[in-house]
Design a protein around this nucleic acid. Structure first.
Lengths: 192, 192, 192, 192
DNA sequence: CATGAATGAGAGTTCATTCAT
DNA sequence: GATGAATGAACTCTCATTCAT
């Protein structure tokens, strides 16, 4: 049973996240968040000292949503092809979800706060993705379901074209055929 | 024969471009540009009324650097494989050129100025790229140098993975193997 | 037998006094006192409504430390020279005790709360000092130990040079020869 | 012929000085100075970034009003007694000039900005005063007009009792007999 | 055309103070 | 009594923007 203050923090993050997704990082002010949450100036400052701090916490929680489900399925010996299908379906959704995407905000944020690699959630995220895909592709190959591809190449294609579309979608509506084509390409590369 | 005013405008854009590449769009103020150019407040305002206006002009000139060279080479019947190599070498350079990249700034800019498709340079740029690649790939196929690929799919892969890396590079130093692998992938897809 | 509330009040005053001595009056906030005492906002407010009120009470208790000892000694017929020596030794200590000195805080306090003479502890303190010295010097003369000096003149010299050094010491470390010289001067003036 | 900006700075300092004398250091805000000078927020900030900076400049100019007149008179061989009289008359005026006194403000200022001795105008001022008096008293002795006193002792008495009264006068109206008595004492000590 | 002083709006931040629990 | 969340006023500071020179 968390304290009342924690609830407020959660509530603030929720509201702020929507603002960041809509307006990017720098365009969101503490005042905006006050208005969105209905809190007073001082009330907000009791919980967070800056948009920076709020954003950091949002990013941290995003990054900590690790995909344990995948490793479980691998343990169970599920079909790699089926798993690939599911992952890519989720990717398609995400590539088109302009409202929920913090991509621009994240880039802005890191653009003004030049951090060393260690602290950079973006890098962590990239490394985590690479690692996840490495394990997964390796599993698919073992199962005889995936071609014997050049891991690193295909992973870079997956990760960066996904990122590229997500960025694009924050600005412009993305024709749903674009995610479809990218997903098709990945399948073609991997599946025997 | 340009007027003196045009020279000043060019000078302002040059200096401003470096600032936008470094700090993104929103973090650059008219004051920053004054300092960078050495112009006074009033002096700058005589030429431009806002960072918005300056940025727009920068983007416009970027977009207007059309690759007429390519169509000429096609007319001359140059080797498609050679041309592909040259294009991709330039892409590699660009993917690693964090200092010159306006990617984050552009996304920020369009993120706060929700424009309809018509006016959006980003969309124009995308459409232009698609068009360019379509012509080029079609030429390669005709010449018997490229495989008979699914145009749209390969083009989306090219365009968005390129964009994805450029964004990434504005924030973090990109290992040069990443552009290399992406370029390799494209070649593998296209070249017979 | 004081109540628990009185203990808390005493505790607050003790902690607050150290803060006032260190930072002056205006630079101490209720928040500072909360942090120093470990009390919560509401907790502190239950006892005091403002730094003003706390400071007033501190000053009042300072002022009420009357030197009854002196009059007793006079009654007993103690040596005036010896008493002078003791008083001046204490003065020397106080002139160098930068940490315990509320001088700056007191001046700040009265500077922003322009009070009529009646309520002003500073004036009371001055008048009390003058009175005390008048009695004491008069006693010394009677005893044949002090010169027949101009009371008021020597008292002003004592009181204001003492004040001047105390102020100075709140800001800068005072060379211990300064209090020594002042004390010597006073002795020279008074003692036969 | 100074620039317009310099005039404004002078004007700001003039108005600010009156405020500091009246309300001390911490109680004067940039807003107060805006109102007093009639400048807008931004207008004031163009010249000074903080009350701190304004106050520093005021103090600096105070400190730089060195008393070159004195050394000239010494060169000319003027009467030491006469010079002493003039100096002390000025001291009397200053001790009673509550409106013009920055004493409390200065103490507050240095109280919150703990500086090393070097940068501290208060210390400079003290050292300068000591030096000036040393020269002057030495001259008076040479001329056979002053007693052969203990320099340091009498100087501390002069300097600190003067300071003590100035502080007192910022808070309470000082009976004009007090400066008179102090001045008398100094004369008695020095003059043969 | 250029300068830089000045304006005013608005963001960030800090506190004294209140109040439900 | 005590806690700490919340309020609102006031202050600091930064800019885009205007304007007299």
């Amino acid at each position: 049973m968390g304290k009342k203050g924690d609830d407020t923090k959660r509530f603030i993050k929720e509201k702020a996240r929507a603002l960041f997704a809509k307006k990017g990082f720098k365009n969101v002010t503490m005042k905006d968040i006050c208005m969105e949450t209905g809190l007073s100036r001082g009330g907000l400052y009791r919980h967070y000292d800056s948009t920076h701090e709020i954003f950091s916490e949002i990013i941290d929680s995003l990054m900590n949503v690790q995909d344990d489900e995948l490793s479980e399925k691998i343990k169970r010996g599920d079909s790699a092809a089926q798993m690939l299908h599911e992952i890519l379906e989720r990717y398609k959704q995400e590539m088109m979800d302009s409202a929920g995407s913090l991509s621009v905000a994240i880039y802005e944020f890191y653009s003004e706060n030049q951090l060393s690699g260690e602290e950079n959630a973006l890098l962590k995220q990239y490394l985590y993705s690479v690692d996840m895909w490495k394990n997964f592709i390796s599993y698919g190959i073992q199962q005889g379901e995936f071609r014997n591809v050049d891991y690193e190449e295909i992973i870079d294609i997956i990760v960066f074209s996904y990122q590229g579309v997500r960025m694009f979608s924050t600005i412009l509506p993305v024709d749903e055929q674009i995610p479809q084509r990218i997903v098709n390409h990945i399948k073609k590369m991997l599946l025997i």
